[in-house]
Write a protein that binds this DNA or RNA. Structure first.
Length: 264
DNA sequence: AAACGCCTCAACCGCCCTACA
DNA sequence: GTGTAGGGCGGTTGAGGCGTT
């Protein structure tokens, strides 16, 4: 299918926006909203294409945009979310109020990638230690079906070197339940399937989302927070602060979440 | 002070998805 | 079922700022 250009280039301005243009755009949107981006510049009297107006508004002029440097907490969150979601900047941005996907993308490429590189050696050593230790303890528990058969239990008190981030979100559970669940997680952690390109689209589909809720709850009872829309990034809607740390410990990369959890 | 190189980030480009006729 | 329009998204670019020589 051949697409027409998104906007007529002739006579339309490109490049940095002037304060006057910003003012016109903000004033118009505050007054009339932005129902149709393509029609907006003409109606507002701007020599810009609709796409340019939309970008300017969503990335810079929106009133809820948080300007300024990223805090250490925000940077850590981006790193964690990127490990789970990959380059899905909009999904990451949805978890960081006031930050845009463009901004997050920029900070990732300019700061965080370097920072992550520095920590890479330490992290890989930690993971290797965690998984090897666990599979040595209970190698026979590698059957996927066994992993799914356990009843509701809180996330395990895993023995990775970073114990502070692996704490359970359910302090009412007893220690034996925790130990059992942890060992069973190890079973499939040692047999992580490869994820193909359609992995996340399947994760984010509504039908599989329902199945994932069931599976997650059957295994660890981890989801505590309601499930949001698929666009928000399904997995990330199913954690509270502690259980997210737990999942990141078990599956530091999104594409390592076993398909068995999806019911596919 | 000038030249140079690196870094940052706003903006653009092109593809994809979805809704609709 | 097909074509089109509109919007969203991720990748990339390039101007300007800044530090170093």
């Amino acid at each position: 299918m051949v697409r027409a250009p998104c906007c007529e280039k002739m006579g339309l301005k490109k490049g940095p926006w002037t304060p006057e243009e910003d003012h016109i755009l903000v004033t118009y949107i505050q007054q009339y909203g932005h129902g149709n981006w393509r029609a907006l510049p003409k109606l507002a009297g701007l020599l810009r294409c609709g796409k340019s107006c939309r970008l300017r508004w969503t990335n810079y002029l929106r009133p809820d945009i948080k300007r300024g440097n990223f805090s250490r907490e925000e940077e850590d969150a981006i790193i964690n979310l990127h490990e789970m979601l990959g380059n899905r900047w909009s999904a990451i941005a949805a978890r960081l109020p006031g930050r845009t996907d463009n901004e997050i993308k920029n900070v990732w490429h300019t700061h965080l990638k370097k920072r992550l590189k520095q920590n890479q050696t330490t992290t890989s050593e930690t993971r290797a230690h965690f998984f090897s230790t666990k599979t040595e303890q209970e190698p026979e528990l590698s059957e996927k079906s066994e992993s799914l058969d356990c009843g509701p239990a809180s996330p395990p008190q895993c023995t990775s070197s970073d114990t502070s981030s692996a704490t359970t979100s359910d302090n009412n559970s007893n220690s034996s339940n925790n130990d059992k669940t942890c060992m069973e997680f190890d079973g499939y952690a040692a047999n992580l399937p490869e994820a193909d390109e359609s992995f996340w689209s399947e994760v984010l589909s509504a039908e599989n989302s329902d199945q994932m809720v069931d599976q997650f709850q059957a295994i660890g009872g981890v989801p505590r927070v309601g499930v949001g829309s698929a666009d928000d990034g399904f997995c990330l809607d199913m954690y509270d602060d502690n259980s997210m740390d737990f999942w990141l410990n078990i599956f530091p990369r999104a594409d390592e979440i076993p398909e068995l959890l999806l019911g596919i």
